[in-house]
């Protein structure tokens, strides 16, 4: 690991000031991606600004038709929250499926979405539910937040504070996990709400994406059969040692059907 200076601010304003004063600084949330990246010398920030000293950034609030999750809330906290399990069980199940128990004890929702790994689980939930990302300066709709592989709409120094999920009528998430890492080879989040059905796919492409053909078919009939004939184009999907693009395209259909089944059972 390259050397860096370490700061643990006691307020959001202090964190912002540190980021502004050090253009090569990086935020540290749970560190489940950043620390392995530093260990491999794939990043060399001048400073780390640890958000672990800001308890206001962690916590769960359910009410007003929403589930609000603070950026520093761990995956384990979301997975085991009785309130989240009651209001939005698909999101609790998604959190329970991330990595392994020790990763879930440290990893956070804010860190996950800010990192925007193309195979991470939370981006599917954020886009599938049409959530809103609240930062220190604005609110960003999920559809505008993820802009590419490891790319988001966040500006330099912008800090995610909270994610606000509207509570849907029904929702489900299904993924085909990589057996070693538990990252999604393909994962699909499906949500039915008053405004229609949303289908968001992670793991299969360079970034999370929606499938309008599936959304239309499921808005007409919210059943696994409704999307059985929808073919996903493999042209823009990922090929790596785990799966070809064609296999991922097939998996998206299978996972979407399972997610719908899960939503109907919840």
């Amino acid at each position: 690991m390259y050397a860096f200076d370490y700061h643990k601010p006691r307020s959001l304003a202090e964190a912002t000031a540190l980021l502004n004063a050090n253009p090569e600084a990086r935020l540290l949330a749970g560190g489940m991606t950043l620390i392995p990246t530093l260990k491999q010398r794939l990043a060399s920030p001048s400073d780390l600004v640890d958000l672990g000293g800001l308890p206001d950034l962690a916590g769960i609030f359910v009410g007003d038709g929403e589930v609000r999750i603070g950026a520093m809330t761990t995956h384990a906290t979301v997975a085991h929250s009785a309130e989240v399990r009651a209001a939005l069980p698909a999101l609790a199940a998604l959190a329970e499926g991330i990595g392994d128990p020790q990763v879930r004890h440290r990893g956070t929702i804010g860190g996950s979405i800010s990192n925007a790994d193309p195979a991470a689980d939370y981006p599917a939930g954020v886009v599938g539910l049409g959530a809103t990302v609240v930062t220190d300066r604005r609110e960003i709709a999920a559809d505008n937040f993820f802009t590419g592989m490891f790319e988001t709409a966040l500006e330099p120094g912008e800090i995610v504070r909270q994610v606000r999920f509207p509570i849907p009528e029904a929702a489900g998430y299904a993924k085909f996990p990589n057996p070693a890492s538990r990252y999604a080879v393909a994962g699909v989040f499906v949500a039915r709400a008053a405004g229609g059905v949303r289908v968001a796919v992670t793991g299969a492409g360079p970034s999370v994406f929606r499938v309008p053909e599936m959304e239309a078919a499921l808005t007409a009939s919210f059943t696994p059969e409704a999307i059985a004939s929808v073919l996903v184009d493999a042209d823009d999907l990922n090929t790596d040692l785990h799966a070809t693009a064609a296999y991922r395209a097939h998996l998206v259909g299978v996972m979407a059907a399972r997610a719908v089944t899960s939503a109907l059972e919840s």
Binding site: K8, L28, G31, I35, G52, A76, Q102, V103, H105, R106
Partner: peptide, 13 residues
Amino acid sequence: GRSVKSCTMLAVQ
């Protein structure tokens, strides 16, 4: 009291 991976944490954390 909660299990964590000590190779993926800084001592300062």
